[in-house]
Write a protein that binds this DNA or RNA. Sequence first.
DNA 1: GGGAACAAACGTCAATTTGA
DNA 2: TCAAATTGACGTTTGTTCCC
Length: 268
Amino acid sequence: MWWHQHNLCFRHPIEEDYSSEDLEQKVATIAETDESAESEGVIDPHKRREILSRRPSYRKILNELSSDVPGIPKIEEEKSEEEGTPPNIAMAVPTSIYQTSTGQYIAIAQGGAIQISNPGSDGVQGLQALAMTNSGAPPPGATIVQYAAQSADGTQQFFVPGSQVVVQAATGDMPTYQIRAPTTALPQGVVMAASPGSLHSPQQLAEEATRKRELRLMKNREAAKECRRRKKEYVKCLESRVAVLEVQNKKLIEELETLKDICSPKTD
DNA sequence: GGGAACAAACGTCAATTTGA
DNA sequence: TCAAATTGACGTTTGTTCCC
């Protein structure tokens, strides 16, 4: 299988812009010269099935490579450069950070823990000890932060306790958030502090379904971004591999020519 | 300035894989 | 077995460059 060819991954930037399929083909062509016999003749159905089957994820491929070959960085869940947490602060890595109108910071960490910080000189880095949490399954009657996809003004809103909303500005690389009083009544499809067990009417069920869909879309949106990042990393890895193999190939050809000259001297 | 062409990034859906 | 994660495919949006 093609991903078995990738035994190494080097970092040598090259100029050409290949698609990942082109690169895979190129790497395979360079690396498999001693396996040409296998490619001849009819592919049996089992092999064909293997070829057609979905490839392992980029994360898995590169992590396998990194465990085989020291020096190849693993693909982490979160990029380290995005984690600005100082080592002396014991807290979960925040995945979403919001700023209130008074300058307070709210971080929603992986696992759903909510952290609130007072206005500090370092902004996010000034996050203090956990003040409120909703991590894990909420107990009966617990307050639930609600997420609504889009309000009338095109922003995204998270409803939090205290009749306030966290408003996300329009799309962008660095989304910004604000906590403010809702400018309008709750948009359709949003129920304050609704817990799944308390849903009864068809309307509530529909609202819950809508909310779940929005949540799923949001998660998939983030997953797609992450997937694209991994794919770019993977393509870079293949580009490096191509460059190294091409150099190796050239050296071997030159070596072969030299040996030929030595072994077959001219008979003039 | 503005319109066309192009590339890159994005959001969504659906099929597939993964891991508990 | 099933929910969650992953990723290919496709259409859309956004940014950049070139030409008029």
